[in-house]
Design a protein around this nucleic acid. Structure first.
Length: 605
DNA sequence: TAATTCAGC
DNA sequence: CGCTGAATTAG
């Protein structure tokens, strides 16, 4: 590493000693006794969004207890603006491991500066996540507290009052940032030892770590949306909402806030005297299923449902998306969160692009807004029945395996089993019921849940479940075994060895215990599906690069991947994607991927 | 901040 | 019945 003036932090993170500043007297040049093999770093920036924010400074640490801070763009004090160009070589050196907490963020910020981080990544946030995915928050603060009993100074309060990190005086920033880099270094040694002990090393190094680069690439790429079209749709929804609103006020005989469940209860259950069918903690439910039922007796509930549908469409999607278009790129850059879900799935936020409407005419209209760049198309590839196939594999159930090997419509087959008839005799309604049962099985079915979903008495739901287990003894056995191992080991695992603790599995409270049983059943299935698509993403990423294709992966929606491909690459890209997805893992049943392309997301489906 | 509702897989 | 995130109201 080149030498440059540094600000050294306290050697002991807990030490109250003032930081020794070296701006007036440069530190002696350090000649490392051993070659640099790993480096912990932590970037401070103007905000939390790595696509739009700017780097303010970078903290560095190469051995426990000693860290440095390099100020780059503070408003006051002696910045070292050239530091990044000096650090570039080290950060891009693939033989030097990079250590940090939430490295995807640092990687993305650095890319804006033209620095492309390479090398093995030791991400302490991901390590902490794999060790216990049930934790709601894996911030450095919390992880430090849990594994090092390390309490950080309450810096965030100070920061909150200031405009940005650039306003923070350099010596204060040094304390804070250097401590973080040192903390990550210290945590790395502890957490990665624990990962090894828990058998999570392969999952980390083969899947989660390489995925950091893939997700960083997807976030950086972003997706193009048609702002003008969204503005048209917003006006259309505005008109529609106005009409429905006046109809609702007329029907209710007064004006009120339709968005307030409280006020709506008054209108429906007091003024109109409709039967409250379900209760919530605070009153009577006005949820979708209740309003649907009530719409048989009165016109108003259906109008309310219509209003809610349009209102949601407008506020959550049509009006929200344009605000999130990045000024520089003109595209929408979601965050793919790798350490949020308890099962191993990703989540997406700001905006959430994993819950864009798909059903109905308006679902189509909204998805048409997601468009490919000029000269490109969007390719959508989604796994068919991925969770049921995984259940077939994990349970080794003969009937399920047979169905998937023969590529039979699984819901029709279940329907014929449940109703004891030939598959040709299955009606649409019977298939709908069977589909719900199949979903229920994956979710850890209960008579209550199924009866709610199908709107039938619990007794009838129980009969369906019994009939299902009768035809699928392997599935029944799998569920019993999974619960038993959860009780004995205190956790459940996916095919790739991802773990989720099941702390409530032996609870004396029947409701709590049964809920724990259901998640014990669901987690290995949902989690294995997450493992599977992550593997596919990494393999596709590598092969696209290998073959020098310009096709870009842009979104992941749990069992679907969306790509943007130049028109002249459509065929090779489709072929590559389908192949990698269908061969990401070898299960006892084949994997099937449906793939399509078009100028927008709706056409691609 | 908690509760409710609803969009997705 | 499993897993999420966002928008809203209301205390």
């Amino acid at each position: 590493m080149e030498q440059f003036p540094l600000f050294k932090s306290g050697n002991e993170p807990k030490s109250e000693e003032p930081v020794s500043k070296t701006s007036s007297a440069p530190p002696p040049i350090v000649h490392p006794s051993s070659p640099l093999t790993e480096l912990s770093f932590d970037i401070e920036a103007t905000g939390k969004d790595p696509i739009s924010d700017m780097i303010i400074g970078i903290a560095l640490c190469r051995e426990e207890g000693k860290a440095y801070y390099v100020p780059i763009r503070h408003k006051h004090g002696a910045n070292i603006p050239d530091a990044l160009s000096i650090l570039k070589e080290t950060l891009e050196d693939g033989s030097i491991s990079k250590i940090g907490h939430n490295l995807k963020y640092d990687i993305l910020i650095l890319r804006q500066e033209g620095i492309h981080v390479k090398g093995r990544l030791y991400d302490t946030m991901l390590a902490a996540y794999l060790l216990n995915p049930n934790k709601p928050d894996h911030s450095l603060e919390n992880v430090g507290l849990e594994y090092l009993m390390h309490k950080k100074r309450p810096f965030t309060e100070v920061l909150g009052k200031l405009h940005s990190f650039a306003d923070v005086p350099i010596d204060e920033a040094t304390q804070y940032a250097a401590e973080d880099a040192a903390l990550a270094m210290e945590l790395k040694n502890i957490l990665f030892e624990k990962l090894k002990d828990e058998g999570l090393e392969d999952l980390y190094f083969d899947i989660e770590m390489p995925l950091i680069y893939v997700l960083a690439g997807m976030e950086e790429e972003g997706v193009r949306i048609n702002k003008e079209r969204l503005e048209e749709l917003s006006k259309e929804l505005e008109r529609e909402l106005g009409i429905i609103e006046s109809r609702i006020y007329a029907g209710a005989g007064e004006n009120f806030n339709i968005n307030s469940p409280k006020q709506l209860q008054k209108i429906l259950f007091e003024k109109l005297g409709l039967k409250p069918l379900k209760k919530t903690k605070t009153g009577y439910s006005t949820g979708m299923d209740v309003l649907e039922e009530l719409s048989k007796v009165h016109e108003l509930p259906m109008e309310i449902l219509n209003y809610r549908t349009f209102y949601k469409l407008k506020t959550t999607y049509v009006d929200a998306l344009p605000k999130l278009i990045d000024k520089k790129t003109g595209r929408v850059h979601t965050s793919f969160n790798q350490t949020v879900t308890a099962t191993g799935r990703l989540s997406s936020s700001e905006p959430n692009l994993q819950n864009i409407p798909v059903r109905g005419d308006w679902g189509t209209k909204v998805r048409e807004v997601f468009t490919a760049d000029e000269g490109c198309v969007l390719i959508s590839a989604d796994y068919s029945q991925i969770e049921l196939r995984i259940l077939a594999h994990m349970s080794n159930d003969e009937g399920l395996i047979d169905a998937f090997k023969k590529d039979i419509d699984i819901h029709s087959r279940t329907a014929s089993e449940l109703f004891g008839i030939e598959r040709e005799a299955v009606t649409d309604d019977m298939r709908r019921v069977a589909k719900t049962v199949n979903f229920g099985v994956v979710y850890g079915i209960s008579p209550f849940g199924l009866s709610e979903a199908l709107n039938i008495p619990p007794k009838e739901a129980s009969a369906f479940i019994e009939q299902y287990f009768d035809k699928h003894p392997g599935v029944k056995q799998y569920m019993e075994n999974t619960i038993k191992t959860a009780q004995q080991q205190g956790y459940v695992v996916t095919v790739m060895g991802r773990k989720r603790p099941t702390p409530e599995i032996n609870s004396h409270n029947a409701n709590i215990r049964q809920q724990a049983e259901r998640l014990a059943i669901n987690t290995p299935v949902q989690g294995t599906a997450a493992d599977l698509i992550k593997i596919a993403m990494i393999n596709i990423w590598n092969r696209l690069k290998e073959k020098n294709l310009k096709t870009k992966m842009v979104l992941q929606i749990h069992d679907e991947l969306l790509f943007e491909a130049p028109e002249n690459e459509i065929e090779p890209a489709r072929e590559l994607i389908k192949h990698e997805m269908e061969n990401a893992m070898t299960l006892s049943v084949p994997l099937r991927v449906d793939i399509g392309h078009g100028k927008n997301w709706s056409e691609a489906h």
